[in-house]
Amino acid sequence: MQAPAPSSFADISDVIAIFVLLTEFAMFRAPLLRSQLKLYAVQSLLVTVLAGFLATSHHISELYLLGAASFLLKVLAVPYVLTRFLERTEMSLVTGPSLGAASMTLIAIATSAFGFFTMDATKVGSTVLPTTALAISIAIVLVAFLLAIMRSDVVSQAIGFLSLENGVSIASLVVASGLPLIIDVAFLFDLLVAAVVFGLLMKAHHVRAKTLSTANLDRLKG
């Protein structure tokens, strides 16, 4: 007896969601800050593709607009802004993650497994996208948290937040694809503003500390 395969539609959307998760893993490990930004752009592109795919298959015309907006802002604008900030700092390599490859991979796997099984337990279903995609999006969010917590440089931490938002985007495509377009667009512009401010503070940090590492951000305590 073999398990029946889900429909092709569910398959394709799951696979796209999984590739988003894989880019998240790749960001978690990427040694070059520049490549992290590129991975972020790729990830956003995948999210856009998912939105477009959903729009075509379910004939939700609003999602086309959302896809276009998300392409312009997340694939082009945000990476561009952050790349500009990074160019001026002329620093590409970070001090490296604080843990070895194996430990980080295991932690990432455990985290995403946790996300998978918790979402499975909540029995949240959707009419538009397979529930698996929701579980994957939660795993993306959790790995994004790891990225922001375990990497000790400002760029990774900013990317952690931005890619967390990508995870939430997928979740919202799954369970809230009917969310009014105006709200989605507001989210996106918010993200752009946040990216600019992240960039400004990165620059400020770099000017003060001459590094992108967060190692010296430990003066304030108590």
Binding site: D14, A113, F116, P130, T131, A135
Partner: peptide, 9 residues
């Protein structure tokens, strides 16, 4: 393997 057990496999 995880994805499969999640039901999306």
């Amino acid at each position: 393997v995880l994805i499969f057990y999640l039901g999306g496999g």
